[in-house]
Design a protein around this nucleic acid. Sequence first.
DNA 1: CAGTGGTCTAGACCACGAT
DNA 2: TCGTGGTCTAGACCACTGG
Lengths: 230, 230
Amino acid sequence: MSLYQTIKEALADLTFSSDTPGKLPSERQLQQQFNSTRVTVREALMRLEAEGVIYRQNRIGWFLCPKRLLWDPIQKVNFYQLAKNQGLKAKTELLTCKQTRASNEICQAFTLDKQSDFYEIYRIRYLDDRPVMVEEIYCPVQQFPGLTEKALDSSITTIFQDDYQVKVSHEQSDIIVTALPDNKAEQLNLNGGAACLKIIRKRFNEQQELVDYNIEYWLHSAIEMRVQSN
Amino acid sequence: MSLYQTIKEALADLTFSSDTPGKLPSERQLQQQFNSTRVTVREALMRLEAEGVIYRQNRIGWFLCPKRLLWDPIQKVNFYQLAKNQGLKAKTELLTCKQTRASNEICQAFTLDKQSDFYEIYRIRYLDDRPVMVEEIYCPVQQFPGLTEKALDSSITTIFQDDYQVKVSHEQSDIIVTALPDNKAEQLNLNGGAACLKIIRKRFNEQQELVDYNIEYWLHSAIEMRVQSN
DNA sequence: CAGTGGTCTAGACCACGAT
DNA sequence: TCGTGGTCTAGACCACTGG
């Protein structure tokens, strides 16, 4: 068996008895401990990261992954409720909210022309204070005047419903595995290139009109999906 | 911008005009071309792999990814039908089929004791002759006597229905992103450690009895999910 | 057999975080 | 300021693929 495999298994077995709980020893410490080089140690670490056992914070170190959030893409349960049901603390941070002209792709999805204005909302979501998701939300200004004034660090669905009487009745999600883009990784204080789940979600009102175009990047080790079909 | 980022973007722009269509130049060629080292070139390649742009076959080289198979985890469409609808050629290869005592986890799922015998079926699935998935299927011998004699390189669901009058009426899928385990990677002629979608699917008959326990590993770049909710 | 990717060594410099 | 991870160099040997 290769050396990095050995290191990987040894690390997986470790109780990671470091100063900070959940934090792994530094790469140079591991290199000495296993009498190897940083390249090889990092190979082992990156495998464990790919498996979803550990994750890294940019220039800080490697950490053990907590358990994944279980999510059913069919159920329209909001993030806070979902987290609470699973004993996790949810938090949302609003990064930016501005009025823009959106990309062609998004205009087309809304069947609006390129002159239309959209709100563009960037948010980060945390579970137990760990950043796990970054999202972009687009919705037409016309339909949601004054949206910037609302409490955008809460549930958008609730705002739609309570403040605008818009009820989401149908949604479609496209889900792929890809690498976290560098600009998104930066917002999460993580490294680009790590596996992530990219979810493009379109939500429609009762008249089947698109009201909300949402792009989410989930840290792959933070989420698990469960779906039922009858 | 870092060198491997530059290389990554240059590679992404390339039309990959190599001998074999879809195959990238060798790592040493790229190293010369970009006046760098293999480590750095491989960093760029692995990023592209993580993004789902290219994949590698063990000791053969790097290849461009064809388009992903679109899959709705709610619909119970069989693999051949799904592929055909999307203009892809599906193929299944039976690796092994044997009678065993299954693991505790699986016995428990079936609510059978540890003495029960199961069929254990290993298969590989191909799209346009590219291996994209490896699976393990467990089902109780008691319920499917003589299953080994059937054409196990076709649809199991069809065999259940036609040969055993067992109709799958309900199923549950757990889906996570993880790394392809080395033993599975080997069966696919791929490298361990690449991102994959692991799907654990339990299928039930009309009496809500578990009939089929299925573990699938999909090459992450080969699949995309789309779900609707009402 | 030549060429490929898989693994590994033993260094180096940098930007950034913690202190 | 010191230690961290992020990036990079310039090699090496091996197992395996393909001709």
